[in-house]
Amino acid sequence: MKSMGLGLEPLKSFEVNKVIDYARFGRLLKNDKALFFMQMFLYFCVSFYLVSHISSISYLLSITSNFIFTEASINKKEIVDGVYFYFLSSSGRLPTYLETLFVLLVCILVLFFNYKFDFIPRPFKIWLNFVFLILMLSSVYFLLFGYAFPYTIDDFSILYAIAQVGIFTLIPFLFGFSIALFSFSWWVLIANFLTFILSLAYSFVFAAVRYALFLYILKNYSFLWMANMFFNFGPLLDMIYISGIYGFYLSIISKVAKKNLRYWKWLY
């Protein structure tokens, strides 16, 4: 039978308001496949653009960091045929015997106190243990084989810059893939794009400051800290701002979407 088409309002009667609270199991987000693919295409293009301009990006990263850490010069290396990668070049130093011993003692003390006392929440304690354990290993290494340390500041610098450019180029693709999922309204597209720009910008600033700081430490406070720069404060740390921005962005769109029935559909 054909509807008499009296143009009812969307479901707003008392029973629906009640159902919404209890219908998480069948809740689905409306989406627009065209908008999703459009976004993905855009993010893919940006990603592709960044990949094809690796030299320029590495140069931009280097001059920005150089602006903060002036005791370095910009150098370049051919990484793929005809493609040059720019990085900051400086001279570092090995730790002295005394400072290595001092750091080792501090590490042992921190690890001991961490083991003995329980006033720090356990996840932070484990994280601290991890940081100081790596520092302790580093100290032991430098006490025993410091003379054979295989890296220069330039080796580290190249590795760091490559990693960071890798993250820049992947943000549009992987982070874009995460936010493009939300395509239920035009304003979400704007929110998505702003979030995407923000994450790229934050990533760049963060990378540049960290680059400068790491080189500053390696130059002035020795290679003793290099292991931690790789294992604790390297790419793993980028996860913080990516998940922070993602969480904040989600909370904003969730606040709006939650109040609007038209963005949702149910299985029944």
Binding site: R24, M239, S243, G247, L250, K255, A257
Partner: peptide
């Protein structure tokens, strides 16, 4: 959490780092 209708709790995500 978005599907569940969570809002501010989503902001806790970076703490998972620890």
């Amino acid at each position: 959490v978005f599907l569940d209708g969570g809002v501010e709790r989503l902001r806790l995500l970076p703490i998972f780092y620890f």
